[in-house]
Design a protein around this nucleic acid. Structure first.
Length: 498
RNA sequence: GGGCUCCUAGCUCAAUUGGCAGAGCAACGGCCUUUUAAGCCGUGGGUUCUGGGUUCGAGUCCCAGGGGGCUCACCA
């Protein structure tokens, strides 16, 4: 391997291939700013970074140096460099991808490219693997996700994507902090899971001889904080759901939840559109986004459609006419659908929505007023016992958030949990377990509260025009490969060679 | 989990009916003091994902396995 030979060559030349320290006077962005202010400099600057391209033209070379702030051309002349550095070190021992520092004045070349006229080079770090194709980068999705560091260094747009993601999270925090919400952290390892309809991951605490669940939501803990006297709380963190993987599902994902005392689901709906359009303004400078060729306008107010109406429009089925699972499933059959015979009435309604309504909700839309029996934590509508005060928000054909007026009647909540445990006994492995600690907290009293949960990954997909959630998660879940051929044997073997 | 589909050099991709595994970039050797996907001349580079099978002959066809992508089911 040529690079290992060059590594040994550097050592032989008395150059430490992995020094502990780098000197630099300017980031590349700062060097560019300096030029913008002062023009060509007499005083040398020192910039550091990775060599992305090298163009050797005999006794003179051009190279592109890249750091986290940008990239800058280096001009190296044999005559301007000390001793035989140019011929021996630069042309022989330094490879594409190596990190170096370069010192010299800022100049502009004949073709107008701002450059460092290099007088001195410090070697900073040796690269042993070849860089991916300089033009095509690395495209194979599997390679990109498994070797994300290579993806990031080869494909600059990917680096920008995760900056955007960070900006989104920052903007969400800014919004909620400004609105008086307190950011809190609640347990990820939970003795009892809850707050969503999903199967959990199970783990075990050895010393306590106790099985624990990785949380599927933050909901119940956050509401215990509302009961405890904080009026506005939020948490941004990871949820874990033991479910399938798809373009919009990763086993762990980033969730925002907030709870607001003295608010109902209508208040939360208004806050949702306000918050998301604020984020768009902060991150994007505009409420208009382009996603997969479609323009999405986040300007409030968003459309509000009762779930019943949306399903009626999309399928011709008015579920109010079929008040039980049997008759609704029968109606679905007649309209050419294939309902899961084990589903409850509410799950049938939900499946009609997911299949026939959700994919068409490109512009931001709230579906409101959900069936009670798929919403065990949502407060019932005063005028319809079968419905709850709940909404879900949709964008680009995906559900991005879910919210409701929270049940604060401990006896009502107990009854819902009992209903859920009935479902669990009849084979629903996503039924909500009874949470005594939560019920106890409610028994001490919780004000009327609006609650909200939103998938940050999916929101990010909209902002960065991604068509799969894997694109917006740095290390998405992939199966582990049997023999991950890490090049250790290869390295050890080659290292012995001169 | 089911269905469909893909896996070839470090990277991006070719390879006719089943007939000598190739190109560009990268690497290596040479020329080159204003290039920016630099250029020109030359060289090396392969467990064609793995294991079986059919065949005179398999990257190509068949079977099993691994991994990816899409999709259905389920979940946010």
């Amino acid at each position: 391997m040529a690079r290992l030979k060059n590594l040994a060559g550097l050592r032989a030349a008395g150059i430490d291939p992995y020094p502990a320290r780098a000197r630099r006077t300017h980031s590349i962005a700062a060097a560019r700013a300096l030029y913008a202010q002062e023009g060509e400099t007499r005083q040398p600057v020192t910039v550091t970074g990775r060599l992305r391209r090298i163009r050797v033209m005999g006794k003179m070379s051009f190279a592109d140096l890249e750091d986290g702030s940008g990239s800058l051309q280096l001009v190296l002349r044999r005559d301007a460099l000390p001793g035989d550095f140019y011929d021996v070190v630069w042309k022989r021992l330094i490879d594409l991808g190596d990190f170096i520092g370069a010192t010299g004045p800022l100049v502009v070349t004949k073709t107008g490219e701002l450059s460092v006229e290099v007088q001195e080079v410090q070697f900073l770090s040796k690269t042993l693997k070849p860089m991916p194709d300089k033009w095509h980068g690395m495209r194979d999705p599997e390679k990109r996700y498994r070797r994300r560091s290579v993806d990031l260094l080869a494909n600059p747009p990917v680096r920008d994507l995760f900056r955007t993601r960070a900006a989104i999270v920052r903007a969400v925090r800014t919004y909620l902090d400004n609105e008086g919400f307190l950011e809190v952290e609640t347990p990820i390892l939970q003795p009892l899971y809850g707050g969503a309809a999903a199967r959990p991951f199970v783990t075990h605490h050895n010393q306590l001889h106790q099985d624990l669940y990785l949380r599927i939501s933050f909901e119940l803990y956050l509401k215990r904080l509302i009961a405890g006297g904080y009026d506005r709380v939020y948490e941004i963190g990871r949820d874990f759901r033991n479910e399938g993987v798809s373009f919009k599902h990763n086993p762990e994902f980033t969730q925002l939840e907030f709870y607001e005392a003295y608010a109902d689901y209508q208040d939360v709906m208004r806050r949702t559109e306000e918050m998301v359009s604020f984020v768009a303004q902060q991150v994007n400078g505009s409420p208009l986004l382009t996603w997969q060729g479609q323009t999405v306008d986040l300007t409030p107010p968003w459309r509000r459609i009762p779930l019943r109406q949306a399903i009626l429009d999309a399928t011709g089925i008015d579920y109010e006419n079929y008040p039980d699972a049997v008759s609704l499933a029968d109606a679905m059959h007649r309209f050419g659908h294939e309902p899961d015979p084990r589903s409850s009435w509410g799950k049938l309604v939900d499946s009609l929505m997911a299949k026939h309504v959700e994919p068409n909700l490109i512009q931001p839309t709230f579906l409101i007023d959900y069936p009670r029996d798929v919403s065990p934590l949502a407060k019932g509508s005063p005028d319809d016992p079968r419905q709850v005060e709940r909404f879900e928000g949709f964008l680009v054909g995906m559900e991005i958030c879910n919210a409701f007026s929270e049940i604060n009647d401990p006896i009502d909540q107990l009854q819902r949990f009992v209903d859920e445990s009935y479902r669990a006994r009849h084979g629903d492995d996503e039924a909500h377990p009874i949470d005594e600690a939560y019920l106890e907290a409610l028994s001490y009293g919780m004000p009327p509260t609006g609650g909200f949960g939103m998938g940050i990954d999916r929101l990010t997909m909209l902002f960065v025009d991604a068509d799969t959630i894997r694109e917006v998660i740095l290390f998405p879940h992939l199966r582990t490969v049997k023999e991950e051929e890490v090049a250790e044997g290869e390295l050890a073997e080659g290292d012995g060679e001169p």
